[in-house]
Nucleic acid binder design. Structure first.
Lengths: 204, 204
DNA sequence: AAAGAGAATTCACTATCGGAAAATTCCTTT
DNA sequence: AAAGGAATTTTCCGATAGTGAATTCTCTTT
């Protein structure tokens, strides 16, 4: 079985990248050994070895456990190489983000000059003090992470009882579930907020 | 670390459409009998029957031929398996993340009990003081965001000159570009670090 | 260089997939 | 309702996916 592709070059986009190569690449990127991945996905390391060497065609069942162990979506096992933007980088200095404001929060969008990000970081100052400040809970595609920098907040959600978070606490949740953050301390609360799956905000 | 929602680990009954139903639906939609589809995809009708009745887990090989015979992309066979988070949520209290350590950094993985996150947040304390502490620059798929909480760091990258970041500064970049963070202040530096497309470590 | 440790592969074996054909179910037609 | 034919399921069996143990490979350490 000859492997013609072997080029030492960087991210080669090969539409026909075989499963074996994809799996090996994903495992290496995750920094896992065969047995480590085997443990996570409940597949023997010998089976993984055979898969990565193209000596075996795994069953649907096995592929599902494999994707699970890699923490990826099973379709990623077929998708070949993912298009990756060139090494872009941007810095936002303290206080220099793009400011936006709605009734309940003041935002400072960080690194806003990079568009089409995989996730969007921002600093938010919570103005709302009461859930009544929200006409209704917010809900949108994607997942969300909150890290409290200062003050104390209450995270209200559709499916859980309100959670109080203090400085240093953090929270990760599915944002399709309705949610709203209010400040419950004396001082204004500041949080670092990260959302995935957000369409590039302002500026055209 | 309290996770309110989750049934422990695997037994989670996914509300997604199983392969069997997907295949049957697609075949019916195409108006094909088992043997007709079998002929097109070079799979015996008995095998197809077993697949459609959930009595068999087809191999990667077979699934490719199947998708081929149906004239669809193989990833469409997983339509029902795509990631779909049902309002999950988890909180990590100050200092309660899962700790990990490598030569250059100490990590505290936040919200580590949620797996398959779209992005992974962590707190890192930078131990490295010199670029020489790194055998080579780190590089992996995905994008990365850094927010400096305390101290001063220098971000070294493959394509840019080193950038000094102080508390409150942030940076977003493509992580396929080699990179390494060192502390350049007197005190240890602490940063909030967010990476996309990373496998969260296993917390046993 | 030898020893040792850990990773990857190979080996021997069992469980299961997948094919051919028999058996059954599900029509349509009389 | 019965007959006939097509679609589907079941049965049986060879081929191969998947496992644990043994082996080989690849490092680092002394």
């Amino acid at each position: 079985m000859a492997d013609l592709s072997a080029s030492p070059e960087l991210p080669q986009v090969s539409p026909t990248e075989p499963l074996s190569t994809i799996v090996r690449r994903l495992r290496r990127e995750a920094g896992l050994t065969l047995s480590e991945l085997g443990k996570r996905s409940d597949i023997s390391s010998s089976a993984l070895s055979k898969i990565e060497n193209g000596q075996m065609s795994p069953t649907y069942d096995t592929m599902q456990r494999l994707a699970d162990g890699l923490g990826i979506d099973i379709t990623d096992l077929f998708a070949g190489q993912r298009r990756q933007s060139t090494g872009r980088l941007t810095v936002t200095r303290h206080g220099q983000g793009v400011r936006q404001s709605i009734a309940q929060y003041d935002y400072e969008m960080l690194c806003a000059d990079v568009r089409r990000k995989q996730f969007v970081p921002m600093l938010a100052t919570i103005k709302a003090n009461d859930l009544k400040d929200f006409p209704n809970l917010v809900s949108h595609e994607g997942e969300e992470f909150i890290f409290v920098l200062d003050g104390r907040i209450t995270l209200n959600t559709e499916h859980y009882s309100p959670m109080v978070l203090e400085a240093g606490d953090s929270c990760y949740f599915d944002s399709t579930m309705g949610h709203a953050v209010v400040s419950t301390g004396d001082a204004a609360a500041t949080i670092l907020w990260v959302c995935s799956r957000i369409v590039a905000p302002l500026s055209e």
